[in-house]
Structure formats: structure tokens, C-alpha cells
Design a protein around this nucleic acid. Sequence first.
DNA 1: CGGACATGTTTTACGAGTAAAAGACCTGGT
DNA 2: ACCAGGTCTTTTACTCGTAAAACATGTCCG
Lengths: 213, 213
Amino acid sequence: MRATEGLPAGEGRPAEEVRRADGGAPADEALPAGAEVPTGEGAPASGRDTVAEVVRQWRAVYPGLDTGPMEIIGRINRCAALLQQAEDAPLGRAGLTRPEFDLLGALRRTGRELTPGELARETFSSGAAVTKRLKQLGARGLVERRGDPRDRRVARVRLTGAGRDTVDGVLPAQLAHESAVLSGLGGAARGELVPLLAELLGRLEGRPGTPRA
Amino acid sequence: MRATEGLPAGEGRPAEEVRRADGGAPADEALPAGAEVPTGEGAPASGRDTVAEVVRQWRAVYPGLDTGPMEIIGRINRCAALLQQAEDAPLGRAGLTRPEFDLLGALRRTGRELTPGELARETFSSGAAVTKRLKQLGARGLVERRGDPRDRRVARVRLTGAGRDTVDGVLPAQLAHESAVLSGLGGAARGELVPLLAELLGRLEGRPGTPRA
DNA sequence: CGGACATGTTTTACGAGTAAAAGACCTGGT
DNA sequence: ACCAGGTCTTTTACTCGTAAAACATGTCCG
């Protein structure tokens, strides 16, 4: 049980529990006289979202600032934080955390046994984390492991019947929940968003990580 | 130093160190009368990004699956993970983690003293986390605190000269880095992405969190 | 054959974040 | 005045993830 709740952003919300905000954005040294706009906090994001307000503040402090990257990266980070929080609700009811579900999901969707290493790559987490999660999921009877007779270094992990049932049971609630969360967006907006995000993600994944900058 | 590197996704990459993947996506048992339009490309986008592959697998297992939400949420989560990793590089060189930078940045961009509570709201983190970070940043001489004579429960936190210099020094590298990371995207795509993300984020922030689903 | 090196997984030590409780302080009603 | 209850912050106990080292095998090549 970890039932998350209460979204942040608001004014006097519990706040205790959200994840991340951006706020990253450089500018030229220059730094002029302090151009503080009392905007304070009484009035939340004048316009649309919290990132817009943050960007506005940075621009006031560093007038020459190119806020372009922030407008995208800050929003993606923030959306991810809120979406993950929202997403966790149905999973929580099933007694699963998202990383745990990701692991079970990888086994379910590939439909075959996977090694811990493959699971790590599949869920984008570290091998050590996978080891720990497998231990817990195994103790709960959701996954089983057996040694590979070929290569005794590796293990083969697979879903148990209960594990498969768990995934099959949670999945509908999960997707329904995601749909509900996105329902505010018009179908048109959703349609435009997908190819753009795919493009961005493709670039991010296709490149040698950080160019070492 | 925390110089992250090696993107995952690949085939036999180090992988050890990335953050998160989606993989979450339910389906209505029988897929209601075709609601979602496949959004864009007619083909299941097989080769572009890792999310596309995940979606393909889910569809194979649950043929009626409505992958719409996954295509957006999965990609946002994944983009956020990769972007954050990439973003950390310049900060790491300055000896800062992103949460630490977010805190310093909040002080810098608001241009005034903030209380721990305000900082927590501003950086979307818990009060306890702010307390810890302030302790560290204070020990490093980047922030100062003084009690508020009016209300002795609250503290007033502000940047020291060194703290301000740190932010001003890191900011340019940070933004340059972000620009470089996004450079793969055409200006047009970036232009389209911003309003869409703003729209989505506005919805997410404006609503009562998860409708309790 | 045998050891050097590569590979797959687990263990260890530790840092960071959270929830909940505790502590310190205001405030409004009687 | 006093205290019940609210607000702001810190403390406590705990979980989780990571990096790096430790293990346990495999593989290659002299």
C-alpha cells in the first residue's frame, strides 16, 4: 500500500509527495539589476501552467534568456511527475509499485522467460534493482525462476499463473485510468502529440546519450 | 561527480543507471467500439523508439488493446528519464544534483527570500527533502537562513553571494546543454510541442489530481 | 590444459526521499 | 489569560535505488 494522492501545484495542497520540477535554464552572465516582479506566490501561474510562471520569472531575472529548451524540458519533466503519480493509483490498489509492474509487464508482453539482465534492459533499471524486485515478487508468488542448464550464470524468470492474472487484472484499470487522465486533451491534440513525442524520443534514444557536452 | 552516461535502449549498453520506463497500459477486455484513431502513421511504427516496440508487444498479447494512452504517457516518462539524465551532466560538473539546483534556482528566479515551505512548493518536493537539502547547501555556503522575527516558526532562506554565482555560472551551461539535446528536433516540431505540452500540463495541474478513479 | 579476461547476477554500503510523528510557535474563542 | 487547534519545520524510521565490489561461470587463446 502506498496509495499516493493529492496533486501538488495547487496553493495549499499537501504537496508532500510529488516528484520533480524543472527550473533549469541558463542565460548570459550579464545579469542586470534585479528586476523582481513581486508576482510573489499569492497569484499562481498567471496563465496556464506552473512552468509558464517559472519561465516568466527566469526571463525577468535574465532578460536575454532563451527559454525555449525550458518550455519543453520543464514541461515534460513536470508532466511525467504528475502522470506517474496519477498512474500509481490503480497499481497501488493491486499492491504494486510502478517499477514492479514494469517488470511483470515486461514478462507478460514479451510472453517468454527473461533473464534478470534482459529485464533490467527492458525496464530501464539497474541490475541490482531487478534483483531486489525479483526477490520480492518471487516471495509474493508472482514470478518464478529457474537456472538455465546451458549457462549456469543466468537465471530464467517467468510469470506464475498468479503473476499473469495480476497483470491481466490491473491492466484494464491502468489503461482506463490513463485514458481518464488524458481525457482533458482533445483527440486532435493527442494525435499531434504522439508523433512529436516519438520524434523526440527517437532522437534521444538514437544518440550517444549526452554528447559529453 | 556523477557523470552519467550510456543511454539504455541500445542492445548491449551499460544500461546500469537509467531511470524509468513505462510499459504500463491496460486494455479494455474487448476494446470498445473503435474509439481512438491510431493517431498518425498507419503502421505500428515499428522501428522508431523503444515505446513503439513495447506498444507493439502489448498489442500482440491483447489484440484489442487501446494503446492511445501508452503512446503518450510512455513516451513522456521515457523522455523525462533520458532528459533528466542528460541534463544532469552540466550540473554534476558544478557539484550539484538537479533537486539542489532546483532549490537554488527557485531562490534565484524569485529574487527574494523564501521559507522552506515555499521552497517545497516551488520545487515540488516534500518539506522534509527541502530541510535536508538546505542543510547541505548551507554547509556548502550556498544558502543562508535567518529566523523571521515576526513568526518564529518560519525561516527565511536566501542565496549567498557564492550561491548566486553558482547559479549564474551553471545556468548558461545548463541551457546550452538542453539546447543541444533538443537540437535534433526541428524548430517546427519544437514550436508545435510547446503549446501541446502546455495544454496537457495545464490540464494535469488544474484538475483535482487523480479523480480518485 | 590453464589462466586471463569477459559476462551475468548478487551483495554491500550508502545516499536520498517519503510518511508520519514530534516540536515549536501562532491564534482565536471564551 | 488560557488553551484547543492550526501552521511551519524538523526529526525519525524506513524503503528504494544506485555504484562498486564480490561471486560464479563461461570463453578464448597461448
